[in-house]
């Protein structure tokens, strides 16, 4: 092998080594983040359990505490990933970010009954919302998180009924319908987000069926969202 070629490939090997080391570092940090993410997710499963509905406030407080560790993790990531290379390594934390966006928005929903705005989610994770402002959360990851939230809420609606709360599904239904119409405003490409969005209709359907079941059995509380044509 000629010496030119030798040094060329040696330089390439150096380049690969530098990159691999950085990736390894990112993987380590992400492992911790991932671990915390799973802890948060596990802790929030209480909402589906018998008697869990009354524990929601303290459960959210607990989860928010765990989010502080996530923040630490992301500040570490922000420190090691070069500012203009976020998307070079994005794959490493993409799924953590999506799941955290989901969990953050679940907490906000449980606390306030509204959709978590992207800046609230970013705040909880400890990142910004814009690439120009530093380590951020990718918009599509946030949206993925919202779609995951819809699936979780469909489950939540089912289990709320089982646990004797007939009002919650109505609110969930309202919430997810609004989310759905929000997503309809987006021009999605034929990508992962699109596929995930296509699954949203099943969540919507599931929730509507619950509301239907409650309605025909007269279990639905009549105080709000009254259907317009109850006369006749």
């Amino acid at each position: 092998m000629s010496s030119d070629m030798n040094s060329l490939f040696a330089a390439f090997q150096d380049h690969i080594n530098v990159e691999q080391e950085l990736r390894e570092e990112i993987r380590q940090v992400n492992k911790d983040i991932d671990q915390k993410t799973r802890e948060i997710q596990t802790s929030l499963q209480i909402i589906h359990q018998d008697g869990g509905l009354s524990k929601i406030p303290e459960c959210c407080v607990q989860a928010r505490k765990l989010f502080l560790d996530v923040k630490t993790g992301f500040s570490k990531l922000a420190a090691i990933v070069p500012g203009d290379q976020y998307y070079r390594f994005h794959d490493h934390w993409r799924f953590s970010a999506q799941r955290l966006a989901f969990l953050a928005s679940l907490i906000v929903y449980l606390e306030e009954g509204k959709m978590a705005m992207i800046d609230e989610v970013a705040e909880m994770i400890g990142v910004t919302t814009k690439r120009e402002e530093g380590f951020h959360i990718d918009l599509e990851d946030y949206l993925m998180g919202l779609l995951q939230l819809a699936s979780e809420l469909a489950r939540f609606a089912v289990n709320s009924v089982t646990n004797g709360d007939y009002k919650r599904p109505l609110h969930v239904s309202q919430f997810v319908a609004e989310l759905n119409s929000g997503f309809r405003l987006l021009n999605l490409k034929n990508d992962g987000l699109r596929k995930r969005f296509d699954a949203l209709k099943y969540d919507v359907k599931k929730i509507e069926e619950i509301v239907y079941d409650l309605s025909i059995r007269g279990l639905k509380s009549e105080e709000k969202s009254e259907p317009p044509s109850t006369s006749t």
Binding site: A177, E208, V211, Y212, I216, S229
Partner: peptide, 9 residues
């Protein structure tokens, strides 16, 4: 009036 699946959405 009877509620229907989809009606509410």
């Amino acid at each position: 009036w009877r509620p229907n699946v989809g009606e509410r959405g």
